[in-house]
Amino acid sequence: MKSSKSIFRIVVGAYLALFFAYMFLPLIFMTIIAFNANEVPQITPWKGFTFMWFGELAKDEQMWKALLNSFIVAFSVVAISVPIGLGGALLLTRLQFKARDFVYGVLVSPILTPGIILGISTFLFWDSYMNVPGGLWTAILGQATFITSYCMLLIMSRAQRFDLTQEEAAFDLGASHRQVFWKITLPFLRPALISSVALAFMQSFDNYNTTLFAIGVEQTLPIYIGTKLRSFISPAMNALAVVFIALTIIGAITYEYRRRRELIKIR
């Protein structure tokens, strides 16, 4: 009995080790290359430890331009997606109507649609019907189409736990609709709103498929990376990857920490 249990443990341990190796080794490998002085982005031959690729990256005007665009797009997406997501969440949790399930299906459909379709359809609509040529604006709208769905789902999951008698109590004590919203409803939803701001920002910052088709000739950071990776690959890209990975790790740790604290609060 005991030996079968320990065999089971070993198998599970090996499986996990393999899985995480599969997940992380490519990333570690990519990171190490960023510090190799070799012109060709490979570990071998090792030509010495260097930060020069970071310097090279920093000299790239195009990269800075793309980065700036990425920030503009991401902030705009947040500004569009979070308020609309809130509206959608309120619609689906607070109002009772027959077509609710159908509307719900339509509002989450962008998540289940391939990103390239959203990019194409947004581009076609704005470029040819509204005379807005593809650019940052169409990229923002294309991304916001599905990012709003994510925000809505996030806010909804919290709104569903809201005890409506609290709003009634506030009304009963003389509060107006506006006061109830700002003093009771919004504070309750705040954690979900903050999470959806973070989520929307990251989703936008990372987006490639939708942006590629919607953005025309402009570049966001992922588009810039995509273009670079298709042409000549320099270790400067590895340097950029290292920066991305570092930021992601910081982001993931803070997010996970917040989420746990939130969970503990609920229990």
């Binding site: 995480f20 997940m23 992380f24 490519p26 990333l27 490998f29 990519m30 290359i33 060709v40 982005p41 490979q42 570990i43 071998t44 990251m202 990372d206 490639y208 992922p222 990376i225 995509g226 990776l229 690959i233 890209m237 990857a241 991305f244 990975i245 992601t248 790790i249 982001g251 993931a252 740790i253 997010y255 996970e256």
Partner: peptide, 27 residues
């Protein structure tokens, strides 16, 4: 955390890592 970190890393970069691994002079 071990799952979230790779999950959040940009899709292009994840593919780039394999581009490097599978290159002719790759590992």
């Amino acid at each position: 955390l071990g799952l979230i970190i790779p999950y959040w890393i940009n899709e292009l970069l994840r593919l780039f890592a394999w581009q490097l691994i599978l290159a002719d002079s790759g590992i």
